[in-house]
């Protein structure tokens, strides 16, 4: 029989969202005292943790140091218990390395690295539970952690995915929608200037539809931005009242 109906004729997705709606986003900043910055985010059932160290002196080989800007060092990992089936995930498997590279590109574009020549910024993210949109959750968590660490950025980097099913662009895909194998873009956006930090696409999408899907993704990024901004403001408010006492 027919597989899962990803978008009903009434316009609801498998989990009850409408096409353009995000999953519920919950986030907290400053979850670790030891790190310079840290944050935890939940986007639906996808949960990610990010910690940021730096900027600090170069660790390891000094030859990697860049004379005009800071080096952004990223590391992406998935907890063994993050997926339905437990799998051992050695560090540096192909998927993780690819993700690490994407994160690095994204944050090199967002952090004002030229302010810290010859130094290094470390961003570590881990997926605690994977339910679609891993890259996006990582970017959003890392953004909050970077802000928590007080590292200057051009703007927030907000990421969201979008897919294309039944001639309709869907925002923020969950695992079931991702697994259906349709086209999917992941977009990391600097929302104020509408600049793209990273754009990635899986599987094939007809050129005619690209614009719609991009629009849905950037709208989703801006929605994410609104949530993240609120989280940051709440956090600052909380911290200042604590300091005030």
């Amino acid at each position: 029989m027919a597989g899962l109906e990803l978008l009903s004729d009434e316009g609801y997705r498998v989990d009850g969202r409408r096409a353009g709606e995000l999953r519920k986003v919950r986030a907290r900043m400053g979850v670790f005292a030891q790190a310079d910055g840290s944050a935890y985010i939940e986007q639906g059932n996808t949960k990610a943790l990010a910690v940021v160290y730096g900027p600090h002196e170069m660790r390891g080989s000094r030859s990697k140091a860049l004379h005009d800007r800071a080096l952004v060092n990223c590391q992406y990992s998935m907890a063994t218990f993050s997926t339905g089936e437990r799998k051992r995930r050695p560090h540096g498997d192909r998927k993780s390395s690819e993700m690490t590279l994407h994160l690095k590109q994204t944050f090199e574009a967002a952090i004002l690295t030229q302010l810290y020549p010859r130094s290094q910024i470390d961003i570590y993210v881990q997926i605690l539970q994977a339910d679609g949109g891993n890259y996006c959750a990582c970017v959003n968590a890392a953004t909050l952690a970077t802000i928590d660490a007080g590292i200057p950025m051009r703007d927030y980097v907000c990421a969201s995915s979008a897919g294309f099913i039944e001639d309709t662009p869907l925002a923020d895909l969950n695992y079931v929608e991702e697994a259906a194998g349709g086209p999917q873009v992941a977009l990391a956006l600097l929302p104020k200037s509408d600049q793209i930090a990273l754009l990635e696409m899986n599987s094939r999408l007809h050129e005619d539809h690209l614009e719609q899907v991009m629009e849905a993704a950037s709208k989703a990024c801006k929605d994410v931005y609104a949530v993240l901004d609120q989280v940051v403001r709440d956090h600052v408010h909380e911290v200042t009242t604590l300091l005030g006492e």
Binding site: G16, K24, N45, G84, E85, D131, N174, V176
Partner: peptide, 17 residues
């Protein structure tokens, strides 16, 4: 039950509107 025969617990979100 997965194809390999293991039992897997699946949690899916379900939004009520």
């Amino acid at each position: 039950r997965t194809r390999a025969g293991a039992v897997m617990k699946v949690v899916r979100e379900h939004y009520l509107r």
